[in-house]
Amino acid sequence: MPGGSLTFTASPNENCYLDHVNTTLVSMREGAGAGASQGSFDISDYKGGTYQLELKNVTSSQTLTFAFVEAEAPVIDAQPQDTSVREGESVILSVAADAAQSVRDHEAMSSGAAASHELTYQWYRVGENGQSAPVEGANSATLEVQDGDAGEYYCQVTQLYLGTVTTVESNHATVSRIEPEALVFNATALPAATAHAEYKASINPATGGTSPYTYALAQDSNLPDGVAFTANEEGLIVSGTPDSTGVFAFGIDCIDYSGQSATAHFALVVTPKVVDLAFSGSLFIYNGQPQGPSLAGIPVDTEVLQPSSTPL
Rank of each mutant, 00 (worst) to 15 (best):
N186T: 06
L143W: 03
T194N: 04
T188S: 14
A193F: 03
Q146S: 15
A182T: 12
T164H: 02
P180R: 12
D147A: 14
G148P: 03
V175R: 01
L183Y: 05
A187E: 03
G148N: 15
A141M: 06
A195T: 08
A141V: 03
V168D: 09
A141G: 06
D147G: 12
A150E: 11
Y153Q: 02
V168S: 08
D147L: 07
N186S: 08
P191M: 02
A173I: 00
A187R: 08
E169R: 15
E144S: 09
R177E: 13
R177G: 11
P180Q: 13
A187W: 03
A189V: 10
Q156G: 01
L162K: 07
A141T: 06
E152Q: 12
V165K: 12
A173V: 01
H196M: 11
L183G: 05
L162E: 06
N186V: 06
V165I: 13
A187I: 04
H172D: 10
V175C: 00
A150S: 10
A192M: 09
E152N: 10
P191C: 03
L162T: 08
L183P: 07
T174V: 14
T194A: 06
Y161Q: 05
L190V: 14
V175L: 01
T188R: 10
V165Y: 07
T167L: 10
L162C: 07
V145N: 01
N186P: 03
C155A: 09
P191D: 05
D147R: 07
D147S: 15
L143G: 04
L143M: 06
A189E: 12
L190A: 09
F185Y: 10
T188N: 12
Y154A: 04
G151R: 07
R177V: 15
V157H: 00
V145H: 00
A195S: 11
A192P: 02
V165E: 15
A193P: 07
T167G: 08
A192V: 04
V157M: 03
V184H: 06
L162P: 05
L160H: 14
D147E: 14
A197S: 14
T188G: 14
E169H: 11
N171A: 15
C155W: 02
V184S: 14
C155V: 14
I178Q: 05
V184L: 14
T174H: 09
Q146F: 09
G163T: 06
E169I: 09
T167N: 15
L160T: 11
S176P: 03
A189H: 07
A189W: 03
N186R: 09
N171M: 15
T194H: 05
L183D: 03
Y153D: 02
Y161S: 06
A173R: 00
T174P: 01
D147Y: 15
T167P: 11
N171H: 14
E181D: 13
A182M: 12
S170W: 01
A197V: 13
F185A: 04
E152D: 10
G148S: 15
